[in-house]
Design a protein around this nucleic acid. Structure first.
Lengths: 239, 239
DNA sequence: AAATTATTTTTGTGATCACAAAGTATGGTT
DNA sequence: AACCATACTTTGTGATCACAAAAATAATTT
């Protein structure tokens, strides 16, 4: 058991108002999102239960939910693991993000009022600030919040769960991408998006979102770098 | 308990090679898909356990998975139910289908070889046949198979789980729509799609898929009819 | 020594139990 | 008769246990 790569999960204080299962779910979700669990690493219920100091039951439920969200993968052996990434899959995930998120943005556009636009602006300012501080973790979170705030303007919106699933699958690798951030290479596409919102220009908004996603992936990591990392992470699972 | 609307779930023979949880999941999924459970109807673990004659455990797992797929909804009370539909949500689901599925089709196009095209053709013939027999249930299933076969041509495809989630949410209402089928109103957009495939014309394929989805919803049910049914189904939950 | 079989351990699955919170019904008070 | 407090029931949650399948290890044979 010890020969398997160790898992270092950041544990947050558990609020009693929340069920254990929910807490486990959020904890494991965070661990996957932050790349704390290596792709291909087999996860066992009892191991995680011991790690999080709970009974196997909440683990089972959380694992099943994460699997349904494609954050984890159930192999034929009934074993659960973080899915391995391939360059092609990475491309597909990014293109899916663009297709769905630009659609979600256009659908949200008519519902964005002055209040929400102001909120978007203030979020954007926080992102600028985080960029000055070079706080990569923060940038990533705030960027997600920006997108979420945009799409949820549509009160009838149904795509956010799908989008979050894609984020989850890309999570570990987005993190790598941002970790390579060095220059002021990040052109702020959010301003472009907000300008489009003010003009109620759906097409321009879609272009801005598309560009934002594409650059968010490409700004630091060249295709070659990406490719190399992906292949490297696949071999890591053999450890 | 008996004052609640009764649930009539079609039980299939359980294969021993499959886990009970898996069987329960498929059974409940089918029940939701076929509209056998009224939206808004509260589902309890013990009730379903008694109904399917299994212990509460597999029910719990299946419910959690279905909730993660947006097939069921967890209320604040921790109660689980089939989500209620609104006209706006219905529109959003359809538009999401179009956005994602036309994208998935375009992405699959380069991978469709002669073998798969032949399979698509033979599926299409089966659909024609089912249409002659006015076998609505069959048409619905075969139509899904057609779309699935198309999208899964792409070996790196990541959107099918998302698409299936949308199908699940639309399920009960798609069923209504097809139940209104009377005339030969159904123009076959599948031929259009397959022609586009032969020409390797991505844009034409997207148009065909879009038209297919749009008509699949609209061909029998006028917006007014749809609206009326949706409102009606909402009040049904008060029974 | 390599491959195959046998044994032991680990693991997921599913059933049962205990408990607290939510819901429902009941009975008493205004 | 309407309202509220109390008792009772139902329900989800989480822990524990039993078991069979799978994995890993050890033993045996070719």
């Amino acid at each position: 058991m010890d020969k398997k790569s160790p898992i270092q999960i950041t544990l947050t204080e558990r609020d009693d108002s929340v069920t254990i299962t929910q807490w486990v779910y959020e904890t494991l979700r965070g661990a996957v999102m932050n790349g704390q669990i290596l792709p291909g690493r087999a996860l066992t219920i009892r191991e995680l239960a011991a790690l999080l100091d709970v009974s196997p039951m909440p683990i089972r439920e959380a694992l099943r939910q994460l699997s349904a969200e494609s954050a984890l993968e159930i192999q034929g052996n009934r074993r659960v693991m973080v899915p391995t990434m391939t360059a092609m899959k990475f491309t597909e995930l990014c293109e899916a993000r663009i297709a769905i998120e630009s659609h979600a943005a256009a659908r949200a556009l008519p519902y964005i009022d002055a209040t929400r636009l102001a909120e978007l602006h203030s979020l954007d300012r926080l992102i600028d600030q985080a960029q000055d501080d070079e706080n990569l973790e923060q940038i990533s979170i705030l960027n997600q919040n920006f997108h979420r705030l945009l799409y949820t303007a549509n009160p009838h919106q149904v795509t956010l769960p799908l989008i979050e699933s894609l984020w989850l699958q890309l999570g570990p690798f987005m993190r790598l991408a941002t970790s390579k951030l060095e220059e002021h290479y990040v052109i702020d596409r959010h301003n472009e998006a907000m300008l489009a919102i003010e003009k109620q220009d759906a097409f321009a908004l879609q272009l801005a979102i598309t560009a934002d996603i594409r650059e968010g992936i490409a700004f630091a990591s060249t295709p070659e770098l990406l490719h190399r990392f992906i292949e490297q992470s696949r071999t890591a699972s053999h450890a």
